[in-house]
Structures are given as structure tokens and as C-alpha cells.
Simulated assay, not measured.
Amino acid sequence: MAGSPRTDPAAIDLALAETMRRDPALRLVLGLAREEVDLTSGRAPAGVTVACRAAVVRCCRTRLAP
């Protein structure tokens, strides 16, 4: 096991990786599309699993099954 990032510079990468695992910078919420959804990358048919940024989930709720 690595030492403290204060005493072991190599531990900084491990500490950062663990921080990003535990508290990711971008939160995604998976949902099931109730209807066809137009995306910037194309169209997702009804019934497929889609990922939304947590910040926009409020406006997507009507299109996603719980």
C-alpha cells in the first residue's frame, strides 16, 4: 500500500483515482427511454437504456421510465 500523498508523491495518482471513483466529476443517471429520443448523436428508440447527465435529469424525467 502506498504512503500518504504528503510523504509519497507516487500516492498522489492513487489518491486522485480514488477521489474520482468515489465522487466523479460527471454524474450519469441511467434510464429506460419510454419513447424515441432525439440525441445529438442520433435517435435512440423507445425501450433502450440511455445515460443522462445528472444535471439534466429533471428535464428528462417525463421521457424516462423509473
Results as ranks from 00 to 15, higher is better:
P9R: 03
P9Q: 03
A10Q: 06
A11N: 10
A11P: 08
I12H: 02
I12D: 09
D13G: 09
D13Y: 14
L16D: 12
A17E: 06
T19L: 15
T19G: 12
M20K: 15
M20S: 13
M20Y: 14
R21I: 12
R21W: 13
R22M: 08
R22L: 07
D23Q: 15
D23A: 10
D23G: 05
A25E: 06
A25Q: 07
A25F: 03
L26R: 14
L28P: 04
V29T: 09
V29Y: 05
L30Y: 13
L30A: 09
G31E: 00
G31I: 03
L32Q: 05
L32V: 03
L32C: 08
A33T: 03
A33L: 00
A33C: 02
A33F: 00
E35D: 11
E35N: 03
E35C: 06
E36Y: 01
E36I: 02
E36Q: 07
V37S: 01
D38E: 04
D38P: 04
L39T: 07
L39V: 00
T40H: 11
S41H: 13
S41Q: 11
S41G: 11
G42E: 01
G42C: 03
A44E: 12
A44I: 07
A46N: 14
A46C: 11
G47H: 07
G47T: 08
G47V: 00
G47Q: 05
V48I: 15
V48M: 12
V48S: 14
T49F: 08
T49I: 10
V50R: 00
C52H: 06
